[in-house]
Design a protein around this nucleic acid. Structure first.
Lengths: 222, 222
DNA sequence: TCCTCTTGACTGACTGTTCAGTCTAGGTAG
DNA sequence: CTACCTAGACTGAACAGTCAGTCAAGAGGA
């Protein structure tokens, strides 16, 4: 409700911290069990609070979970942006994006986001409000890719190209790959997923291949 | 209520019919509302039966929904196989697969399967049993693509190529595209999705691009 | 005192599942 | 043909558990 006056300089309000704890907890739970299998009491327990407090903060279960979805995806894209800022070469940047998307789970908060995506899609499919958010997220994601490509063109790493067209297709491809990886498909493990993504990027952008791989790029000649 | 009319054929009796009704109803409901928002009483109502009867047939809600998922996906692939059998040219067959996947909804049972996919993925992600089924389905789907390509090679429509590699990548691409279409993405409508899929197929397989058909006022040509 | 944060104890509604029994078709004995 | 019988399909009603959300009250700072 009322966002408490944020003049408490020392650090983030304890209140905001509380909120974030709940959001994080909710995000984890959703990823693990699924949107509708997540109980507010679970979230409360993991956040070290009482169920009543969760309701006190978010009013309703649905808005808690919806916000948690937003929060988590937000965090993912933020992480992307951060890592992107630390890398310069076009190829490395693309591979970083691919690796982040098809991450061999494990690490921190980012991974396990797969479960979140499935639920995000399912929710977006049926609830207009969530759909709006997803569109916005997708837009930003594509812009990220577009910017990376344009930067590559600007620096002369590759020739001029329709970056938007590439972004749309590559984003779609990454979605598909991440599904298979998340579902532990027998044919598509993380490494192969990244190889496929990079192979496509190479042939679409005219990017020189990383190393001699026996994979033969089809179509566009290198 | 009094749905049972025919009973002649000894083989599949009214009982199997009843079962199928329930499975179909469950499939629809899952697609509409989602897996866990589907109540057995809903399924019962739509199938014209009592909730108790549904349990009588399937034992538990979970097994009902799981079977319904299987049943529906099975039907989708069957439909694919059937349509494939009526088309010869490689390009047409691929486009048919793409169109079926990214179908502009509308028609009968097949469409709306999007909602099913989202839930299938979500379930497969968390339940090993469903995951096994999905793997099997995916395998069959890829084999379908592979067979189509191999047939095209055999008939000399395209040169020799690694059909399995293509199948994996193309299937992944179609998954990604279907997501965007299902979610009514602003950048990827059904037609563009199909264009992307076919574009990729063309450059990967060395398929000659579609005959230049300028924008023709889409006839009612079935 | 007043306000914000916090909680345990409830509750009202929902829903999967069970149960005890009804109905119908088909078989069989008389 | 009739009367009885059995098995399986089917149901309404009740049970039992779950869970989101409410409430009144307490703690603690300003």
């Amino acid at each position: 409700m009322t966002v408490k006056a944020a003049d408490d300089v020392g650090g983030t309000d304890a209140v905001d911290q509380r909120r974030d704890q709940m959001l994080v907890a909710a995000g984890q739970l959703i990823a693990e069990r699924g949107f509708s299998e997540t109980r507010i009491s679970d979230v409360a327990r993991r956040a070290g609070a009482s169920p009543a407090l969760v309701i006190y903060y978010f009013g309703t279960k649905d808005s808690l979970l919806t916000e948690a979805l937003r929060y988590s995806e937000e965090k993912f894209y933020t992480a992307c942006a951060t890592m992107l800022a630390q890398t310069a070469a076009l190829r490395d940047r693309l591979e970083m994006l691919a690796r982040l998307t098809c991450a061999p789970d494990g690490d921190d908060e980012i991974a396990g986001a797969w479960g979140l995506w499935f639920d995000l899609w399912a929710q977006a499919f049926r609830h207009p409000g969530v759909a709006k958010d997803r569109i916005e997220l997708e837009r930003r994601w594509r812009r990220t890719i577009t910017d990376v490509v344009i930067e590559g063109v600007r620096k002369g790493e590759i020739g001029k190209i329709d970056a938007d067209e590439f972004a749309v297709t590559w984003a779609v491809l990454l979605d598909g790959l991440s599904i298979q990886v998340a579902l532990k498909d027998e044919m598509v493990d993380p490494e192969r997923a990244i190889a496929i993504a990079m192979g496509f990027a190479e042939s679409s952008l005219g990017l020189p291949p990383k190393r001699r791989r026996r994979q033969r790029p089809a179509g566009v000649s290198t």
